[in-house]
Amino acid sequence: MLKIENLTAEIDGKQILKGITLEVPAGEVHAIMGPNGSGKSTLSYVLSGREGYEITGGSATFNGIDLLAMEPEERAAAGVFLAFQYPVELPGVGNANFLRTALNALRRARGEAEVDAMQFLKLSRAKIKALQMSEDMLKRNVNVGFSGGEKKRNEVLQMALLEPKLAILDETDSGLDIDALKIVADGVNAMRGPDFSALVITHYQRLLDHITPDRVHVLMGGRIVKTGGPELALELEAEGYAKVAA
């Protein structure tokens, strides 16, 4: 499980996270909601190890291991997955090749046997079918020329293949039409189980219509200002952040 205690972080000398304390027990899905500039994306990058963020205090552990001391790839090997708000394009790199390279890197780090091209094809086809996506997705270059919705779907496909223990979804719902939103939600729901936790970061309540969170946290000004059940999301939607947080 994920345990964050009094985490503070800054970027370019500006403090963004001002003491976040949060626990996501194994098997639970938590939503983090908050207005723009509240520190949502910073939190997801700090947890996944992006450079440029200085941790000034506090801790974050995953199943007891110090997350913050690890390289991004080590965190991935430990089972942490970040679904990007803006998935990155890799020209000339085939999606299938990228996914297999990633899967094998993770398997290698965990001391498991690598999958060969045939095994991967079988595995990826099964996942694609379950997610109701097109096999075309595998043949294209990573995110190159993908529509906003396709990019997000590709993130969900990666998540399904890499089978993380903790998924952080950074505004995965932004820019999605209702059908794409459902595919993303189904992808997350399909993974729910006693060994899977997720941190769903979102502006809006609509994604939470499809992924019912166990807990909802409100992030404002770099702090969790309120925590509640799924009904809190509805409340936020109806009343606005300012009023709920007050």
């Binding site: 996944s48 190890g49 992006r50 450079e51 440029g52 390289e71 991004p72 790839e73 965190r75 991935a76 090997a77 997955f81 970040l82 990007f84 998935p87 990155v88 394009e89 890799l90 990228f98 390279t101 990633a102 899967l103 890197a105 993770l106 780090a109 990666q158 890499l162």
Partner: peptide, 16 residues
């Protein structure tokens, strides 16, 4: 930098 981070967040080391 974002390309490198994207790959690393998926488990590839810097050189891979």
């Amino acid at each position: 930098e974002d390309q490198l981070f994207y790959c690393r967040a998926r488990g590839l080391n810097q050189e891979e």
